[in-house]
Design a protein around this nucleic acid. Structure first.
Lengths: 156, 156
DNA sequence: TCATCACTGGTCAATATGTTCAGCCGAAGA
DNA sequence: TCTTCGGCTGAACATATTGACCAGTGATGA
């Protein structure tokens, strides 16, 4: 669970050039191939590296509009609402939070007009009391992990 | 940019079993290897598949607390605030939005106490007028793409 | 009718993989 | 001090995969 410097370098290298392969990594990092392989196995069984799935861009799929919806849920309806939202393909992520809202929901849509359809489908469910939506305009910092990995690696 | 059924099956298969390789995919999908290879190349140059970076779990790195901060920015300070937030490793993502806040910010921290430090660092910057934070408790739907890809693929 | 395009099924050499091995080293413990 | 242990090295091996080709085929559209 604690990451050392070599683990960090492996993750960062992999994040920058995912197609690189174990052999080439060992060359770049100056360690034996078996070491990289063992480290990678450990990182994956640790759960630090969850997988290597393709990073799909919803915009390129025809869903250029992203929005966040904050939902307030009627007491005791949480489980039903989750099951409902899980059936909506445009719901990319769902989180329960503290604070004024009860759930935070990442949505995509084909257009601003289409977003209305998606929101209607999302909130068209009994347990949802109120929803407020914020449309994403820019993404100055896309989801990233490298700086955090570097920080975690130097610490230990 | 439009995705057909075979593209969709390729992406879904890759999302489910990322380590699978082109040859094995062609066997599973019942098409020639060259076809899968050509489709993958096209999907990547299209930008539909952005890459195959490792999916790192911040919790396994020692950052089990996730939070969203909504920031209000002083007029004209947007660019400075972005640059500031980009230097904070615990800021995993930053989006500008419509609505009451001006920016939405995904944070992680080592603990609830550590979250205070992170927030102090985030808001300790001149251009930020106000911040409100929601701590994530559960993640009923982790970031996903498969349902959307399936929907995009049947449509065309 | 012809050209274009995507797909097939095949080949080829080059490369990477999974696995195993013995040996080395530093740290921890007896 | 001696011993054990875990991690790393450098190497070997058979196997599988890759990237690159090719000719042939069928559908599409000009």
């Amino acid at each position: 669970m604690a990451i050392d410097r070599l683990d960090g370098r492996i993750i960062v290298l992999l994040a920058r050039e995912p197609r690189i392969g174990v052999l080439e990594m060992s060359r770049r990092l100056g360690v034996a191939r078996g070491t990289v392989q063992a480290r990678l196995d450990r990182l994956q069984s640790n759960g630090v590296i969850r997988g290597f799935g393709p990073q799909v861009d919803p915009a390129a799929l025809g869903y250029p509009v992203t929005a966040f919806a904050t939902l307030q849920i009627r007491q005791g309806q949480g489980a039903d609402v989750r099951a409902h939202l899980a059936t909506v393909p445009e719901v990319l992520e769902l989180l329960t939070t503290t604070g004024s809202g009860d759930m935070l929901c990442r949505l995509v849509a084909r257009s601003n007009a289409d977003l209305q359809r998606v929101i209607d489908r999302v909130v068209g469910f009994d347990g949802i009391v109120r929803a407020s939506t914020a449309i994403v305009m820019e993404n100055p910092v896309p989801l990233r992990i490298i700086p955090l990995v570097e920080q975690a690696a130097v610490g230990e």
